[in-house]
Structure formats: structure tokens, C-alpha cells
Design a protein around this nucleic acid. Structure first.
Lengths: 125, 125, 125, 125
DNA sequence: GTGGTCTAGACCACC
DNA sequence: GTGGTCTAGACCACA
């Protein structure tokens, strides 16, 4: 796992967990990988993973059973989608559009690139 | 001029200069506003502007004549476009596509939103 | 550590780091002294050290792990040599040769002086 | 005429004048090119040339006749040689030697490069 | 603990 | 007037 710079690592970890949920790799209600194990797996300080899980817990996407681990909440998917869609449209999209205009990138080019992207990353069926 | 939080002010100043160049508000080869004057105009510390100009000079977008000021390089437009396009495609676009897929947003919806955005922000004809 | 005047302190700090690498005092891949600690050690402002490290990072000689520190890149030695050799030959050497010609200093004299210099400064055997 | 960065332009102009004297392009006692004309020729602010001539006058290498111009002093050659040789050996040479050692450049390589340099620049006989 | 950014203000050399 | 450098010290996010 490699991280984008310009965004906190713990947020990227939280994002990763959300995506696993959305992609239904991790079923609702199930226990997720422990802080320690994830930290080792992605070569990061356990504190950083802790912070990511904290963040998710604050947003009620996961919950903590003391001495057992973190579990995915029942309505996690709806929460994640609502949270991200709002953020995405309000924050990211305007930046993207501005760049498209200034850099003279057409919606057709975007569409083409999008198809390629999907093929490369999600055609695992 | 008001700054977004979450991104360094000096980078936003650099971006602002780049956009002036792209929008051809400031002609190639011309002298740009001095560090001090810009600092006063946008109410930041001169050091912050200096840092922005430094950054742009490192990327060969502007150049410095000793004791005279900073000037826009002849090929600044190409460099700015190349630099931003690379960054845009490599960093932002993959995130956007990922979100589109996960949040189930179609390219048609993007296109519609883009048209609206252009009308609202750049229909200065 | 005492600084020559006529050259920015931050550049002299960067040079110092480079020389430690070249002299293999600091192994490739290892963490280098933190900005604050070096600032205290050589009695300059942390900002000045930061600027030196920034400069080195731009030249890809050191790299930064967020929240951990700066590390020497694997190919730092080659980069340092390439960078300095280029600068040395293009900037300094022509000046030196010009002076040798104008001041009538022979290559033999240079050789003699060089041997003396090595003996005085690097005969650590 | 193009200037090295890292050294003041006015010093490079002064150096240029000294070299003309050493190379006997400009005879002792003769009037040198006026500030205004030199400034136009090398595309520099007249103030900068003024400063160079000032510097040379302080070192008694040239002298000023009011309303007439600047003239080369009778013993200019000796002064220039003495002044530069001292500076050269004390300041520049140790830096050069240090670089030779660190960058692993042999005296033979220096000699070879020197011969090439002389051929390219001074074989105008 | 680490680095990153910013302000305030000074001093300097240079054009 | 211009930019370049440096100090002093603050605050912040991050690991």
C-alpha cells in the first residue's frame, strides 16, 4: 500500500476500510483486521491505524468491543455513501472541473479515461 | 483573495499566478508584481509570497532578474499545463474515478454537472 | 561548525550533509539528524536547517518519512557526485583555468600544492 | 556577456576589465570605455558599471579624470596580479582541492582539461 | 517526537 | 526600488 502525499495517512487508511465495505469485501457486522495486524501489513505506526479507526468510530461506521476488536456497523454502507458523496461533490468536483477547463480537457477524454480505469481496476469478475 | 484551508497558502499563491498565466491575464515575458506589493495586496507575510515565487522559479515558470523582479518565462504556458496536467491525471483523476465507481455516479451526470459549472463560472462572453 | 561568509548558511549546511554522505560517515538509507537537533548543535535557527533539508530533498538526495524524519536516499552518492561534479566543472573550473593562465600558474605548481593540501587535510591513516 | 550567478555582476564586470588589462588588450595609461557605453554593450544598468569602476578605482587600478573618463593606471598590471593571485590561492584553491578529493578527480584529469581549455580560449595567435 | 507553515521583522547586497 | 537570507518564535498536523 502506497500513500498519496498531501493527505494524511490515517485518512487514507480510513478510506481504504470504507472501500472494503462498499465493495462488500468485508461483510456488515463482521470483525475487521486488528490495529496491530493492519499496522504491520501496511508498514505504518499502530498509532496511525488507531487514529483511522477512531475516525471511523466517530462517524459510526465501525464500533469497538473492548478486548475483542472493531466491528462494522449494520448501516455502514449507507453512512459511507452519504458521507463520501457529499464530500465528493462539494469539495472535489469543483476542483476537477476547474482543472478540466484550464487544462482544456474535454468530457469525452474523461469518459474514455474512465472506461480504461474501470477495465484496469474492477474487471475482476 | 481568500484561501482554502488544508493547502499551504504559498501553494495557493503559486496556483493563482499559474492561472493568471493560463488565462492570459499576464503576458509571457512580462514582469510580475513584486514580492512586497503582492504581500501587501493579499495581506500575507512577504516570506510567504517569496516562497511561492521560489516554487515557481524552481519549476522554471518564472525567472528572476537580479534587483529588478520576477518575469514570466517564454514557455511558461506549456510548462504550467504539462505540470498541472500530469499532477491532475496522476493524483486527482484516479481518486475521482474510484469515487465515481464506488458511489455509482455516471459519466453522464459528470457531464451535466460540468456544463452547469462552466456556465456559472466562465461564461464571461 | 563555522560558516564562510559570502555563501548562504543553508547551502553550507546542505554541503555539509553531502560531504558526510560522500565520506561515508552517514550510511545510505539511514535517518539523519533531525532539523531541531541539528539546529541546536550548530546554533542556527531551525528554519535555516529546514531550508537546507528542503534543498536536498528537491535534489532527491534525502527523503522524508512523515512524522519520522529525513533519510538518505539509496543512490544519494551518485546524485551528489553528479550534481557537484557538474557544478564544479562548469562553474569553478573555467574560472580556475582562466586564473591559472592569466596569473601564469603552471599545472606543476597546482599538483604540488594539491599534494600538500591532501597531506594536511586527509592523511588520516 | 553572460554572468555567473552567485557572484555580483559588478564584480564580474571589474574582473572583465582586469582581464583586458592582463591580456594587454587595453594598454596602460589609455582611456577605457565609458560607463554609459559599456552599460549599453553588456545590457546592464549604468549604476552597476559605475560600481565596478568605483571598485577598481578604490584598488588604484584605474583612475578618473573629471569630465574625461577613466584611465588605466601605470602600474595596473602588477596590482591586478598581486591582488588576484593572493585571492586565488587563499580562497579558491582550497575549495577546488577539496572538490577534487571528494569527487575523485585526479591531477592528470585537471591537466588534460586545462590544455583543452587553453586551446579553446587562448590559441588566438 | 517529527516536519510544515506562517508571521514579524530585521539586515543585506544588488540594480 | 528589487529579491535573498536569517532570526525568533509560534501553531499545527502527524506518527
Amino acid at each position: 500500500m502506497d500513500f498519496r502525499e498531501g493527505q494524511a495517512i490515517y485518512l487514507q487508511i480510513a478510506e481504504y476500510v470504507c472501500e472494503q465495505i462498499l465493495l462488500k469485501q468485508w461483510p456488515l457486522g463482521s470483525k475487521i483486521i486488528s490495529i496491530r495486524d493492519l499496522a504491520i501489513a501496511i508498514e505504518v505506526n499502530p498509532n496511525t491505524v488507531q487514529r483511522a479507526y477512531d475516525f471511523l468510530q466517530q462517524h459510526e461506521i465501525i464500533t469497538n468491543k473492548r478486548g475483542v476488536g472493531y466491528f462494522i456497523e449494520a448501516n455502514a454502507i449507507q453512512l459511507v455513501i452519504a458521507f463520501r458523496k457529499e464530500q465528493f461533490i462539494e469539495n472535489e468536483l469543483s476542483v476537477v472541473f476547474r482543472n478540466m477547463y484550464l487544462l482544456n480537457i474535454s468530457t469525452e477524454e474523461i469518459e474514455t479515461r474512465y472506461k480504461k480505469f474501470i477495465e484496469q481496476n474492477f474487471k475482476e469478475k
